[in-house]
C-alpha cells in the first residue's frame, strides 16, 4: 500500500514526509521527522505529553492523523526556543525547578505557551484547569504552576 506524501510547515520551516494511513501526527513527528521532543505517554489523548500546536490550536498529536498535517502549520517544543534564546517559560521551568524527570515538560511548555497566548494574566485556577490535560507524576504540579505564573508575570512586565 503506497504511503501518503504530506507537505506541511513545522516550526516555521517547510517539511514533508511519507506516512501510512494509520500513523498519527505524533508517530510522524517522532519516527519520520526525527522530532522526538514530543513524547508518547498514552496514545489516547489523556496525558498531554504530545502537546503541539496545529494551526494555532493546542492539540494532542496522538489524536491527529499524520495526513491531517497536509498544508497545516505545526509548532512543537523544538520551535519554542529561538536559537539559544530560551522562552521565558523554559527559563522559569529551570529556575523554579518545575521539572524532575522532564518527560512531561515539553508538553507542559507547549500547553502553557498556548495558555499565555490566549490569556496573558491567568489566575492560578485558570492555569490549573488549562493544564489539567497535562499529566505529571513527579512534581505534584506545585512548581509547574508557579513557573507558569512567574513566566506570565515576566512576559507581561517585559
Amino acid at each position: 500500500m503506497a504511503k501518503h506524501h504530506v507537505t506541511t510547515t513545522i516550526n516555521g520551516d517547510p517539511a514533508e514526509f511519507l506516512c501510512e494511513t494509520q500513523q498519527t501526527l505524533l508517530d510522524c513527528l517522532r519516527d519520520e521527522l526525527g522530532l522526538t521532543g514530543s513524547k508518547e505517554g498514552c496514545a489516547s489523548g489523556d496525558c498531554g505529553a504530545c502537546s503541539v500546536m496545529l494551526d494555532g490550536r493546542l492539540v494532542c498529536a496522538c489524536l491527529v492523523l499524520g495526513v491531517e498535517a497536509e498544508g497545516a502549520t505545526i509548532e512543537t517544543i523544538e520551535g519554542v526556543a529561538q536559537g539559544d534564546e530560551l522562552h521565558p517559560l523554559q527559563k522559569h521551568f529551570l529556575e523554579d525547578a518545575a521539572l524532575q524527570c522532564g518527560v512531561c515538560t515539553p508538553g507542559f511548555i507547549v500547553a502553557a505557551k498556548a495558555l499565555l497566548e490566549h490569556n496573558p494574566d491567568p489566575t492560578e485556577t485558570e492555569a490549573r484547569y488549562w493544564l489539567a490535560g497535562n499529566l505529571c507524576r513527579c512534581t505534584g504540579y506545585d512548581k509547574i504552576i508557579k513557573a507558569v505564573m512567574n513566566a506570565a508575570a515576566e512576559m507581561r512586565g517585559a
Partner: peptide, 9 residues
Amino acid sequence: DGVDKVTGR
C-alpha cells in the same frame, strides 16, 4: 541537564 529537558532535546 535542564536545558535539554525544556527544549525537547
